[in-house]
Design a protein around this nucleic acid. Structure first.
Lengths: 335, 335
DNA sequence: CTGAAAGCGCTTACAG
DNA sequence: CTGAAAGCGCTTACAG
């Protein structure tokens, strides 16, 4: 019940309250003798500095707000864990906000976040209004969009090379000799969904090939499964590029339920390379988003902006890589 | 850059700073006229109360610390999302700490957590020392262990009926006529791993059956896969009870790689019923932990203790349910 | 209902 | 190096 304060420690150690504070402030000046007395008293009393009080006066909460939506998609728990570990190592912690998918929802959540005086905000897989951007800027809080870009360049963002990824997948499927290539796209309300689709269709067009079909899978399992059932009805595609792995699993399930064999009867390629993609049950060929490097870049960016106080928007795009597995026919010479 | 404070709003509205505070404090008294003036000024200035300052004086941060470890196991992201949503709805937010698996690691993380003056702590899938328990109690911070029990009853905890679950699985496999039943157990350093195993072996023993083998899978994919390969070498078990779904997926993968068919050549039963278990690629028979009810109970418990200030340890155990799918032979009369 | 004032637990110039 | 004092942005008795 008893909160031990620096004054309590000061009294017991026979020094001033300021002295106690200095001993617990890295870089502050305190004699070895004072430090020893203070530490002893602190230990005896079980004293630990109140981070909130420190945050109030220093203006630094050492809290990073994280807005996250699709936790069913394994990409995000993985990112969350990496982010949290790396931040913890640097003395920061994550205050988590699960956001509804709408811009208004995100805005209200972001507002909440700012009320906590977070030092920075990482928004994973969400978009937000420019009003909010203005507020964050006014408050001097750096914001980084993770795995999502934004029109107008008001926010910093870290993504993989989505357009290139889409292109590579198209080249891969073309090289394998596929001619009836469908695309179950990522949500077209998101930059990732649009960019991957754009790169993909671009290459197809250049090759003079019309896509067999292009539909919005909404980054949703059920939608993707329904789309697949429809595609399988009648004349079938011989390949499907799916906007992310999470949907691709549903596509593979549906294909198998139709009695077809992925990689033989029909090639399937995903996007992300979440851990599950490598498990034998799916063995999914997919374009890897280098999540480790995306997380590092995000952390460097946001901590850098917190340290320097400079918050100009940066755009970072990290190269991905096609990972060849069993769900798609492999063209000669690819590996 | 400019932080707008209640004093700024007061100046613009022509009232005292206390009046501004009251307008933003639910339940405090302020005339409609004052409230209107204040709200107008606040909106114009973009004022929002500083949650940290409020926390300092009220002693309530409205932050719940969450300690979590195994985010690869889908059970935890799901729990995290449910927890976060429910808490957000009640005006609380989650400060997240990813913990190493050791007791010391957890202790240091918990200490960090308490420095943030969290109102309560939820520890998912981790154990911690009784020293820490003492500290939390001294600080008046309620702690709830989620999906883990603790010796000595110092902490509150919410689990499913793990012993019963183990028993039910054993009865199920026995009823299906299996006689060479192996157990790849959950980590024996955890209460869940031990309890499930105990219930399971208990029923087998009462039926006069020796388990075909019992090994510790450590809640780890690779370990579980290695154990499975070993079990498949030579005379095989005809059924395997796996300590959680996360391991069971590796077991199913391994069985298939050996050219065997789960549910026909060998029955596999997991524990948890994570979303992936229902996907056709795995179609895993498993004992469901009712995660929604576990989350509700956890939140009721911790918010209740925060409100009342009473923090006696409570132990809550929630009934689970066996979910029948294709990975295990179904005995007559079961459904 | 409302304002002046104290105080939450710290950090940080300012003198010494 | 060290202490006294101001101040971070609020809430909350206390008078009126």
């Amino acid at each position: 019940m008893s909160k031990v304060t620096s004054a309590d420690v000061a009294a017991r150690a026979g020094v001033s309250q300021s002295a106690v504070s200095r001993v617990f402030t890295p870089g502050a000046s305190a004699s070895a003798k004072t430090a020893a007395k203070v530490r002893k008293a602190a230990t005896e009393l079980g004293y630990r500095p109140n981070v909130l009080a420190r945050a109030m006066v220093s203006g630094k909460s050492r809290i990073i707000g994280l807005v996250v939506a699709y936790l069913e998609n394994q990409f995000y728990p993985v990112a969350l864990e990496l982010l949290s570990n790396a931040l913890q190592k640097r003395g920061y912690h994550i205050l988590i906000f699960t956001a509804p998918n709408s811009t208004e929802g995100v805005d209200s959540v972001m507002q909440d976040l700012m009320d906590y005086q977070v030092d920075g905000i990482i928004a994973a897989s969400v978009s937000m209004s420019s009003t909010l951007a203005e507020r964050a800027r006014a408050a001097g809080i750096p914001v980084v969009l993770f795995n999502r870009a934004q029109e107008g360049g008001v926010f910093s963002n870290v993504t993989s090379a989505n357009v290139t990824g889409g292109r590579v997948v198209a080249e891969f499927l073309l090289a394998a000799g596929h001619t009836r290539i469908a695309h179950i796209a990522g949500w077209q309300g998101s930059s990732t969904g649009r960019d991957r689709q754009r790169g993909f269709l671009d290459v197809l067009a250049k090759a003079g090939l019309h896509p067999f079909a292009t539909v919005d899978g909404m980054y949703n399992r059920e939608t993707a499964a329904a789309c697949t059932r429809q595609l399988l009805d009648g004349e079938r595609p011989d390949a499907i590029f799916v906007g992310n792995d999470h949907m691709a699993f549903a596509v593979l399930d549906t294909i198998r339920q139709a009695g077809l064999v992925p990689g033989k009867d029909i090639s399937v390629v995903g996007f992300d390379d979440v851990p599950l993609s490598a498990w034998p049950a799916y063995d999914l060929t997919t374009y890897r988003q280098p999540i480790n490097r995306m997380v590092e870049a995000t952390i460097d960016l946001i901590l850098g902006q917190i340290d320097t106080g400079e918050a100009r928007p940066h755009t970072i795009e990290i190269d991905g890589k096609l990972i060849l597995r069993g769900s798609a026919r492999i063209p000669e010479g690819w590996h």
